[in-house]
Amino acid sequence: MKTQGETKRNQIDRYVNNEMQGEELAQFEQRMREHVELAESVHFHRDVLQGIEYYFIKELKKDLIQSDIPKPKRNLKTYLAIAASVVVLAGAGLGYYFLKQGEMNPSGLAATYFEPYPNIIAPVSRSAAASSTEEAMQLYETEQYAAAITQLNSLINQNPDHIGLVFYRGVSYLGSHQPEKAMADFENVIEKGEPSLREPAYWYLGLSQLATGQKVQAKASFLRVNEAEGVLAGQSQQILKAIQ
């Protein structure tokens, strides 16, 4: 049963949205004339709705302005990122197949989709004079995640603003079955990171959330991957369909 407050709110909303007619409309307007508080509530409600509309139309105008700004040409890093996502996708098709067959739970799906993101920050020279970052990334490339994490921790302590290192530590955590720690790193990357890592960060965050059984949160992350409209969007949509 509706309370008196709900009924009043509903009436105000219907009045503001021009959904009242005839006798009901006349009676409501009469009540507004007699009760100044009701009239003010109506004005307030109308202002709130118009304010909401105003906000969104300004957002649309911003989108139009944004569409006039030429998109930057892809740099080498972006091409590497695309190549990386192709690697990620290699596992994706298989995972989707299994899930469709009803043979896999979300954490199993995360494990199947997981592929380490290629090293795009410090190509490993394999020379004797390799830098600390190269050493860490060499461990990462050879999937020695525990050792890579130790090295990356040390590097991040020295340079906390190097968001690329945080990203690879997140991938290493996920690769070594520590999704909670991975999530913290990916959230950090998303919050502070550079745009080129945003999409893969959401992707791996989604996988980490799947690995911990957080389907709702994973869904939100994969939706963000979709919004980026990058190369991971198609596979992200497949996961979304599959986990629904």
Partner: peptide, 9 residues
């Protein structure tokens, strides 16, 4: 008030 609502959004 409408401007304020838009900002609060």
């Amino acid at each position: 008030r409408q401007q304020l609502v838009a900002r609060l959004m």
